[in-house]
């Protein structure tokens, strides 16, 4: 039997289109000014427990919307941070929403969630939904939303935990300040006025 050697070249020109995104500074907290923020596109998807998660139902909370996948190494670093952030800030009106872009669906995602002990809500992203968020070409991609459901920051690629925490704290405090101002300037309820008049 003869053995021949044939040359065939296949060039993988991969990743070239996302280079510009990688170059964006992602290492510093950088919230958009409030008046420049756009509303995050709403979606309704079934979560890991079979309940519908509608993004707009989370209005009033600061939301970290994280696009990720089980095959994404950098995503796996961020997930333990998100688990701790969910635990730390949940009572202050914060929620993490994971959007898995795994093509294998829950079959891949649920075991991963169990392995990592994910404590926040998870949905499976769809192509249509990803298009609403600019296509989500690379993972991880995270959107930090303010309490009005508006996009305060976008991070493409892994970001430091410090950056996320600074942004979340700033957005949570922004609400606290506004709430305090509202109480100070609010008119007294009628019943209380009557009681004081006596």
């Amino acid at each position: 039997m003869r053995k021949l050697k044939i040359l065939m070249a296949t060039v993988l020109a991969i990743g070239l289109f996302s280079c510009t995104k990688t170059d964006e500074p992602t290492g510093a907290a950088k919230l958009k000014a409030e008046h420049t923020r756009n509303e995050a596109a709403d979606f309704a998807l079934e979560d890991a427990n079979g309940q519908t998660l509608k993004l707009s139902d989370l209005r009033g909370k600061v939301v970290l919307l994280n696009f990720w996948a089980t095959w994404c190494g950098p995503c796996k670093v961020e997930i333990p941070w998100f688990i701790e952030m969910e635990r730390e800030f949940k009572d202050q009106g914060f929620a993490v929403v994971g959007v898995s872009m795994d093509e294998d669906g829950w079959k891949a995602v649920k075991p991963f969630m169990q392995d990592m002990k994910v404590n926040y809500r998870m949905v499976l992203g769809t192509e249509e939904m990803a298009q609403l968020y600019g296509g989500v070409e690379a993972l991880p991609t995270s959107y930090v939303l303010d309490r009005n459901g508006k996009v305060a920051s976008v991070h493409m690629g892994i970001v430091s935990r410090k950056v996320f925490e600074e942004e979340i704290r700033a957005l949570l405090e922004a609400k606290a300040t506004a709430a305090a101002a509202d109480v100070d300037s609010a008119p007294l309820p009628v019943g209380m006025v009557a009681a004081g008049a006596n």
């Binding site: 003869r2 021949l4 044939i6 040359l7 065939m8 070249a9 296949t10 060039v11 280079c19």
Partner: peptide, 23 residues
Amino acid sequence: MAARRGDSVTVPVTVTVANGYHV
């Protein structure tokens, strides 16, 4: 490639990954 019936042929598939990326 050209080969004869009964041959065993080795074809090297050369792959180039863009700079800064790994697979």
